Simulated assay, not measured.
Amino acid sequence: MAAELDIDFGDEASSGDGLDWRQRAVIVCDPTPFSRRLTVDILRYAGAERIQTCSTPESAIWFAENADQSVMVVDWRDERLDAAQTIRKLRRSKGEANRIPTLILSTKNTLLDIEAARDAGADTLALRPVSPRGVTERLTEITQRPRAFVKTSNYSGPDRRVRKADGAGAYKRDRDVAEGMTTPLQAARAQAQSIIFTMLRRGDELSARIGRSLERFLASVDALGDREREIIQLHRASLGRLADLQGESREERMEVVEGLETLVRRRLRD
């Protein structure tokens, strides 16, 4: 979870009405027939009542603009569909369609891919293979507890800052840094401590361990450069992966944590 230190946000209230995602029109954008059918099966099993399938971004956005209260699921499997660009086009479309909740299903898990999806304005991303439970949790989160919608000169989408543990809103790190109240490194260290506290309070020791890993790393550096930001993003991606694996075996979740720690050690030696 890297601090958002490069954009001056202007908050706007979210347009989400809290309507359960199962009652919305679920627009599935996927150019591959097999994976498209697989996604539809997962959504139906999870309780979706109305599903519209599309093979191109243009048709998906058209349905979003003409459907009443929809949610979009975009697949990111190969070069035939750029999910991030699809979401970016959606966020620039006219009317209320540009604010609909969006989920990217992806086999891509590099930092650049995850960051691209997030910076395009996607609400959330889940890595394939994904279960009906995983889809339900993600879609429930973005429809029942939507983030504030943000518009700036170069970004339109849900507020990318991390929510406070009590749900009272997002940290104002960007503004605090800009006003000289803290430094980027201090903000990142405070966030690592917040991760540890929040995860321990939830009883999620493995996620807290990721927070401790980030805290140890940040204690060893004097400033945030490209390498440091990349390692921060590695921790963010690992937290997201652990969230996807909620309910799975401890051994499977432990592999994520140990893989992160090994990768961080290697990056530090480079």
Rank of each mutant, 00 (worst) to 15 (best):
A192F: 11
T124N: 13
S93H: 11
H235T: 08
P31C: 09
D166N: 14
E96P: 12
E251F: 03
A187L: 14
S131V: 01
V40D: 06
E58F: 08
S55V: 14
V130T: 11
P132N: 08
I104C: 04
R209L: 07
S213I: 00
G121T: 08
S207N: 11
H235Y: 05
K94G: 13
N154L: 06
P33G: 04
Y171I: 05
V40K: 04
D75V: 03
D176I: 02
Q191M: 13
H235N: 11
L239S: 03
E230D: 02
D119G: 00
E179V: 07
D75P: 00
R269G: 02
I100D: 05
D82K: 05
F63D: 11
A208W: 10
T143P: 03
L239E: 01
T262A: 15
L245I: 03
V264M: 11
L103Q: 03
L242H: 12
G134T: 12
R253N: 05
Q246F: 12
Q186I: 10
G18H: 11
R147D: 04
T143E: 05
M72V: 15
W76T: 03
R227N: 12
R36H: 03
L260R: 04
L234V: 00
L105V: 06
D204P: 02
L19V: 14
A84T: 03
E248S: 09
L245K: 08
I100L: 15
L185H: 05
F63I: 14
G10F: 01
T124A: 14
A165F: 14
L125N: 01
Q69R: 06
L239T: 00
K94P: 02
G240N: 11
G240K: 07
L38A: 12
V150C: 07
G121A: 10
W62M: 13
I195P: 10
L19Y: 07
A187W: 09
D41T: 03
V130F: 00
E137Y: 04
